[in-house]
Design a protein around this nucleic acid. Sequence first.
DNA 1: CTGAAAGCGCTTACAG
DNA 2: CTGAAAGCGCTTACAG
Lengths: 354, 354
Amino acid sequence: MEKKEKVLNGVKEIARRAKVSIATVDRVLHNRAGVSEKTKAKILEIIKELDYKPNILARRLASSKTMHLYTLIPERSAETDYWDVPLQGIFQAENEIKLYNVKVSKFFFDMNDKQSFIEQTKRILKETDIDGLLLAPAFVEEAITFTEECKRRNIPFVFINSDIPQQKSLSYFGPNLFHSGQTAAHLIQYLTKEADKVLLLNIAKDIDSDHHILRKQEGFMHYFQENSPRTIVTENLYDTSYAAVKKALSKIVKADPDLHLIFVTNSRVALVARFLKEIGKKDILLIGYDFLPNNITYLNEGLIDFLICEKPQEQAYRGIKALYRFLMFEEDQEKEYFMPIDIIHRENQQFYKN
Amino acid sequence: MEKKEKVLNGVKEIARRAKVSIATVDRVLHNRAGVSEKTKAKILEIIKELDYKPNILARRLASSKTMHLYTLIPERSAETDYWDVPLQGIFQAENEIKLYNVKVSKFFFDMNDKQSFIEQTKRILKETDIDGLLLAPAFVEEAITFTEECKRRNIPFVFINSDIPQQKSLSYFGPNLFHSGQTAAHLIQYLTKEADKVLLLNIAKDIDSDHHILRKQEGFMHYFQENSPRTIVTENLYDTSYAAVKKALSKIVKADPDLHLIFVTNSRVALVARFLKEIGKKDILLIGYDFLPNNITYLNEGLIDFLICEKPQEQAYRGIKALYRFLMFEEDQEKEYFMPIDIIHRENQQFYKN
DNA sequence: CTGAAAGCGCTTACAG
DNA sequence: CTGAAAGCGCTTACAG
């Protein structure tokens, strides 16, 4: 490596030009009180003139502060281990930045228990050192209450997985759910003829207030209104146990011998794959969501044909990094970052990065 | 942010325990000469004991050296602007790390002119300050000669876009070409019936030595040998002008009125889309490669049905970052990083990140 | 073979 | 309202 030529740099140069000490420069840099308007204006001018950019390394090295980030996401549940993946993303980001004195405190709630969400938000709000927050706002009303308090305290927060636009988070990292449904629909249009029957299957305890499912379904239906139509049958399964799914599907498959394709609107597609495997039916195409271990197994066995996935690990990773960059560098962050909507099948699955 | 408690840290603590100065500690840390075996051993032991990790920020701040990276990739050509995208990735990485005294010097060669490649490698080798190199090894023999010289000089290099495994680069970032062909084939299996005719179309000046095309084609053919077969016709078009492509396709389409699908093995798929548009034929499915502006236009018009893409921008971005991390942190790098093989259609294209 | 000292570009008490 | 000085954890001449 070659030597760097030397020039008087940074705060020193500013101080020299403004004929003040570097401490005073530092004060205006951080907008701290105790500088006369006159010197402040002068220094600000020089900063602009020089297009001064602080050296982050030096700043970090000299500072003795720890940045405290908090996260609140669902814990993995009996129904799906989906939330393991975003948690990995949090760890990944944490590993990258812990050198710079960043701590991440992780809190979890139960997807099927609104009360647990409320309790966790209360636990978090007891802390006094919250510099930033990452949140999966599964319960909308409660998430609004929570983030309102954050705003009052001037704590920046980012949403992942689903958005609440009116809360004006620092950033949102997650899918565009409507287009996710459209993406599935467009693919399915290629896989079916007009006469083919398509089953849209929602499997979740609380479908009617599940924003994810509802929006995807809207996008899906919208697509087939605008494009060559298909015969679409919708079924809602509120009991997510395999026994219940099996019972319901048996009836459906029996009643509809020429069912061509089943589209499951979330990661529970593995339950359907298991059923199809058990009855030995391989001529029904099956499409679902999320790159999870048991889904991948069924994909490789040929029971699931396509998985749609929106990089849940990267969502959380980017969320943490956005908070970090905002707090550390005062960098502006992208308001909405929609994840790519990935189409995975048996032959490209081995290279997928979640 | 909360204050950090203070402990004696790093080189100072090591020096204290070893009863030497920090300069000596620094010497063994960097494996520099001039330390007695005895003190060296002692210091090494303490380093291990403490599980000492150097503070990169401090190291960077104190060092007055500039890291010099070189890149050699094709320039954009009349046939495709594909190579604009990796170049963006180089700029993206450069922007992130230029704060840390990294310079990236960019060299380009003409994809259709082997001599230009040789000339550029010679220009690069005239430099004496090469810390690392990123290379798209389009001409295999010449790339071997070049990287052999790099090895002699102890310069680490990474490959992008295509690999030469026996050269043992620091890393490779690019597609697994064989599986890329298989991915296209698997998708096409869903889009066709056994009786359908599929045209595999290679459009390039030098198909017979185009590693990319050949390996993709192998993967494609292999898939249909292992799985339910299709009638596949292969055509090689060595003249990449639109006039020539048009002429050849007119003949093919006329001779084969029930042609069902055309698969173009590289980014030249836009030429075929243009042709299909001109003759007003919308019932032939069209699949090709790469997320480039004119391809996307045809995708949105419904003339191209699917694009396969392997994140060329990210390839170059990761390549530069790998060199940087290796040189800066002495981090081990992944030998082979195969990019995901992405499937893009009209409805998910707007969220794709190249 | 080894060490004392200055410096990288900042932040942080402390003193006035 | 302002400045001098020490320090963050390293690297780099320089002296012996």
